[in-house]
Design a protein around this nucleic acid. Structure first.
Length: 592
RNA sequence: GCACCCGUAGCUCAGGGGAUAGAGCAGUGGAUUCCGGUUCCAUGUGCGGGCGUUCGAAUCGUCUCGGGUGCACCA
C-alpha cells in the first residue's frame, strides 16, 4: 500500500499548531520552519512573537505556554522558549528514525504526490531547423528538462514540447540557395510529376553552411531576398516540390537535433513546431476579427492588451503584419489554441530568455482576452538570464562568434578527461564515457545551481572542479558511497534487510535530518520553479555525508548493529542523492 | 524618455520579515595516513547609499547612485 507521507515540517507544524490551540491561541501561529540557528536547535517557531499583539501578552509568555503543551509530544524532544519569543525545537530521534524507515519503504521515498495532478505543457528548447544548437539554447534545455522531471516526480503529467522554428523566411532562404547551387534538382521543376528522391540532397553539415550564406546574401542583394520571399510563399502555399524539400530539411535537421539533445539528456515528448499550427491560423484570425478583438492599426491587425493597472505602456499584440503575413505572435497564439484542443493543459510553462518577458505578457493577455484559454488555465513565463563568459559579457568563442553547443560540450569533456586521467581509475573507452557523464554534471549543475532568472558566469575551471559546490563533487560523493557499499558486499555483507537505528553521533543525526527534508525540498523547488533549490539541497546532503564519513569508520566497525544501520543509512543517502540529480538531468557513474 | 530586473566577502553565488547574514573558490593554519587526501576542521572583511514602515529589515515602501534589459510589423 502506498501512503503519501506528510512532509516532516508539516508534521511538526501540526504538532505545534495543536499546542497553540491547546493553550487557547490561534493555531495559525504554529508554523514551524527549519532553524536558522543550528547551534541552538533544529527547528523553530516564531509564532509567539506574531501572536503577542493579538493576545496582549509578552511573546515569551506565549512561547512558554506552548512549550508546556509539547512536553508529552511523541515527536518533539525539546521545546525551548527563548527571548524575545522564539520557540526552539528539537526532534525526537525515535520519531526521526521511524520517519526515515518509512521513507525507505514508500515509493519515491514517500514523496507527496500532488492530490490533483495537473497536465502541464513545458515549452522549451525552441531551436531553429537548419541551424546548429548554440549556447543560447542551453539554458532553456537544461532548466526546462529539470522542471519537467521535478514535476513528474510530484505526480504531474508533464509534456515537453520543443517548439521548433521550422517555418518562415529562413526556410525560403535555404530553398533559394539550394536552387542557386543545384537548379537541376526535380524539386524546382514546377511541372515535375514523378516521385521525389528519398534521400535528401544535402547533409546536415551542408545545411548548416547554407543558411548563413543565404542569410548574408539576402541582406546585400534585394533580388535574392525577393527570390527567398517567393520561395517562402510557394512553400507555404503548398507547392509540392518545395514541400518535399522542406521535409528533407526537417528530417535531416531533426535527426541532428535529436542527437544533440540526447547528448544533453534532454528529451521532448512533442516535436511540434511553427509549421504544425499554420493550418489553423486563418480561422483563428478570422474569429478574432469577427468577435471584435482584432482591429486594424497602422495597417497591421492587432489586439489591445492594455490594462488599467499597468504602470507602463503595453503595446497591442500584433496578429498580422501590415503585409498580411503572420508572425511569431500568431504562431504562438495558434499553438496555445492547438494545445488547448489536443492536450487541455492546466498550465503551460514557457522556459525562455527573460528578455522576452514583455512579448509573452502580450501573448498571454491576448490569449486570455480572446478566450483561447480557459479562465483557470495558467500561462507561466519562466525567464532565464544569459550565460556569460568570465568577462561578464555574453559567452563567445575566442573569435567572438557564437559557440556551438557541441563544441562547448566537447571542451568540457576534454577538460574532464584530463582530470580523470590523474585518478588512473579508468582508461580508454570507459574513461571517455565517464568524462562525458561527469562533464554533463559540471555543465548542468553549474547552470542550475544559480537562480534561473539571473545571468551567470560560465567558468570552466570552477564548474569542472571536483571540489566545492559543483556537479563533479556531487558525483564523487555518490561514487564514494557506492564504493563503500560494494566493498561491504565484497566482505560478505548483505545490503538487504537493514534497519536504520537511532543516531550515535551529531554528524549522523545531521545527515538523518537532511535526508528527512527530501520531500519538502522537492515540493518547494517545484512550487517556486527553482531547480537551484534542489542543487542547494544535494550539496548540503553531500557535505553532511562527507562529514559523517570523515568521522566514522564504517566498514571496520565491530558492532554489527551499528554497522548495518550505517549501511542502511548510506543506501538511503545514495538513493536520495541519485534521485535528486536525476531531477537535475544527470546521473552518476559507478566509478570515476 | 518610460518601464522592468539586479547590486550581499577579493572572486562566484545562496538567503527574499525573525536571533550572531551564509556557502564555495582563493589565502593561512591544522587534522585524518583508515572504507578513494577529489575528505574534514579552524581563521577575515560584507548586505551600493539615504529616509521610512515594523517589536524586528539584506528582505517591504520610497528616494538616490551604479549595472543590465525591454519598449508593434524580428524571433
Amino acid at each position: 500500500m502506498v501512503i503519501d507521507m506528510e512532509k516532516l515540517l508539516d508534521l511538526i507544524s501540526k504538532e505545534v499548531q495543536d499546542a497553540f490551540s491547546k493553550s487557547s491561541y490561534n493555531e495559525k501561529y504554529g508554523k514551524v520552519t527549519l532553524s536558522n540557528r543550528p547551534d541552538l536547535c533544529q527547528f523553530q517557531c516564531n509564532g509567539a512573537m506574531a501572536a503577542a499583539k493579538e493576545y496582549k501578552k509578552a511573546p515569551i509568555v506565549i512561547a512558554k505556554d506552548v512549550a508546556e503543551q509539547l512536553l508529552e509530544s511523541r515527536m518533539i524532544k525539546e521545546a525551548d522558549p527563548v527571548a524575545p519569543g522564539f520557540l526552539n525545537l528539537k526532534i525526537k530521534e525515535s520519531f526521526l528514525v521511524n520517519y526515515l524507515q518509512q521513507m525507505r519503504q514508500e515509493e519515491e521515498f514517500g514523496l507527496k504526490r500532488d492530490k490533483n495532478p495537473k497536465t502541464i505543457v513545458v515549452d522549451y528548447g525552441g531551436p531553429n531547423v537548419a541551424k546548429p544548437l548554440h549556447v543560447g539554447h542551453l539554458r532553456s534545455a537544461i532548466i526546462g528538462e529539470s522542471l519537467k522531471r521535478i514535476g513528474s516526480y510530484l505526480g504531474h503529467r508533464m509534456i515537453g514540447d520543443i517548439h521548433l522554428g521550422d517555418w518562415g523566411l529562413q526556410m525560403g532562404l535555404i530553398i533559394t540557395e539550394l536552387k542557386e547551387r543545384q537548379p537541376e534538382l526535380p524539386y524546382f521543376d514546377l511541372s515535375y510529376e514523378g516521385d521525389y528522391p528519398k534521400t535528401p540532397p544535402f547533409t546536415i553539415e551542408e545545411l548548416e553552411e547554407i543558411y548563413p550564406v543565404a542569410s548574408e546574401k539576402s541582406k546585400k542583394d534585394p533580388l535574392y531576398k525577393e527570390k527567398a520571399m517567393e520561395a517562402t510563399y510557394l512553400l507555404q502555399k503548398g507547392t509540392k516540390g518545395y514541400r518535399a524539400l522542406w521535409n528533407h530539411i526537417l528530417d535531416v535537421s531533426v535527426r541532428d537535433l535529436k542527437k544533440n539533445y540526447k547528448a544533453l539528456h534532454v528529451e521532448f515528448e512533442l516535436w511540434n513546431g511553427e509549421s504544425s499550427v499554420q493550418d489553423r491560423i486563418p480561422a483563428m484570425v478570422q474569429r478574432m476579427r469577427e468577435e471584435g478583438y482584432a482591429y486594424e492599426s497602422e495597417g497591421a491587425l492587432v489586439v489591445d492588451v492594455k490594462e488599467e493597472k499597468d504602470t507602463k505602456e503595453i503595446p497591442p499584440c500584433m496578429i498580422l503584419k501590415s503585409d498580411g503575413a503572420s508572425l511569431y505572435n500568431t504562431t504562438d497564439l495558434a499553438t496555445i489554441e492547438q494545445r488547448m484542443e489536443e492536450i487541455e493543459p492546466d498550465e503551460i510553462l514557457y522556459v525562455v530568455d527573460k528578455r522576452q518577458e514583455l512579448y509573452f505578457e502580450q501573448v498571454f493577455r491576448c490569449a486570455r482576452k480572446t478566450k483561447l484559454v480557459k479562465d483557470d488555465t495558467k500561462l507561466t513565463f519562466i525567464g532565464f538570464g544569459t550565460m556569460n563568459g568570465k568577462d561578464g559579457k555574453p559567452f563567445k568563442t575566442r573569435e567572438g562568434g557564437v559557440m556551438r553547443l557541441e563544441h562547448l560540450m566537447a571542451s568540457i569533456q576534454e577538460e574532464m578527461e584530463r582530470k580523470i586521467e590523474k585518478n588512473k581509475n579508468s582508461v580508454g573507452e570507459e574513461m571517455e564515457k565517464t568524462a562525458k557523464i561527469v562533464g554533463l554534471s559540471a555543465l548542468k549543475y553549474g547552470d542550475l545551481s544559480n537562480q534561473a532568472s539571473k545571468d551567470y558566469i560560465f567558468d570552466m575551471d570552477r564548474f569542472t572542479s571536483f571540489e566545492g559546490n559543483t556537479g563533479p563533487y556531487i558525483l564523487y560523493t555518490i561514487v564514494r558511497i557506492k564504493s563503500i557499499l560494494s566493498k561491504y558486499e565484497e566482505m560478505g555483507g548483505k545490503l538487504e534487510e537493514k534497519e536504520i537505528k537511532e543516531p550515535t553521533s551529531e554528524g549522523e543525526l545531521a545527515m538523518m535530518l537532511g535526508l528527512a527534508q527530501f520531500n519538502g525540498v522537492v515540493d518547494n523547488a517545484f512550487e517556486e520553479k527553482a531547480p537551484h533549490k534542489i542543487c542547494a539541497y544535494v550539496y548540503e546532503l553531500a557535505n553532511e555525508f562527507n562529514r559523517f564519513y570523515h568521522e566514522t569508520k564504517i566498514l571496520s566497525e565491530k558492532e554489527e548493529d551499528k554497522k548495518s544501520s550505517w549501511i542502511a543509512l548510506l543506501i538511503l543517502t545514495r538513493d536520495i542523492l541519485e534521485r535528486n540529480i536525476h531531477m537535475l538531468g544527470f546521473y552518476a557513474p559507478e566509478r570515476m
